[in-house]
């Protein structure tokens, strides 16, 4: 099972401390060097090494061994990061778990449409109200994603995941939502898609599997009732 947020946190857990350490160490070195070797105004004529035993700048112009050693350390850091990333990438790109629900996501300027495959249930928003993506908690949910016009991107920040929605080519991925809850504007389009790109959002509603099943039944019944009413009329 690929919990995208956990994968994100794991990779970040290695990258963040290294990154912060690098920034802190180098900024400290820059500041220390600048202050330690600073010469004050009044003694700053170039080449000034007059009386009083003023220090001259060092003339050492390279240190091939130290630099090679340092480069080797850099290569090791890069290798560590790449190894961490690759092992995550392998899991995210080849999900193994069987999904319990499949939701076909259609992106269009500037709306989302969620079709629950095999149920006939569809979630659509209104003109100014975003649709709600209802999913079961703690179960892998399979998504297929396609656009009918321009390129969009399906982003659920809480899951630390996004994927481009390309016109004419569908993409599929699995997400897992560990905890129940309701996220207003919990999903959004993150690929610029024109005029109302900023409004292209959806709410995310994660329910317990039982509540999800109940919701699905109710929506099917409503859809069936509408269908029956239409047939009767």
């Amino acid at each position: 099972m690929t919990d995208t947020r956990r994968e994100f946190d794991q990779v970040a857990g290695l990258y963040l401390p290294i990154g912060v350490a690098v920034v802190v160490v180098i900024v400290a070195l820059v500041v220390v060097m600048a202050l330690r070797y600073r010469v004050r105004d009044g003694e700053q004529e170039p080449g000034d090494d007059g009386p009083g035993g003023r220090r001259r700048p060092s003339r050492i112009a390279d240190a091939p061994r130290a630099e090679a050693l340092y480069a080797a350390v850099l290569v090791c850091i890069a290798a560590l990061l790449v190894w961490r990333t690759f092992s995550t990438e392998a899991r995210e790109d080849h999900p193994r778990a069987a999904a319990t629900a499949t939701i076909d996501v259609t992106a269009a300027r500037w709306h989302w449409r969620f079709d629950y495959r095999g149920t006939g249930v569809t979630q659509l928003g209104g003109d100014r109200t975003p649709p709600t993506l209802v999913v079961p908690a703690a179960q892998p949910v399979r998504f297929t994603l396609v656009s009918i016009d321009v390129i969009h991107a399906f982003w659920i920040p809480a899951r630390r995941f996004k994927r481009d929605a390309n016109p004419g080519a569908s993409s599929s991925f699995e997400l897992i939502f560990p905890t129940t809850g309701f996220w207003r504007d919990g999903g959004e389009c993150s690929e610029f898609c024109g005029l109302r790109h900023a409004q292209m959002r959806f709410d995310v509603d994660v329910r317990t599997p039982a509540a999800y099943a109940a919701w699905l039944r109710q929506r099917r019944a409503a859809a069936g009732a509408v269908g029956a009413a239409g047939a009767a009329g």
Binding site: F8, Y15, L81, T88, E89, W155
Partner: peptide, 16 residues
């Protein structure tokens, strides 16, 4: 930049 060079991190941060 190294951070977003990792796909797992970039999936979240890209276009944000």
């Amino acid at each position: 930049g190294i951070w977003i060079g990792s796909p797992a991190l970039d999936y979240h941060d890209t276009d944000s």
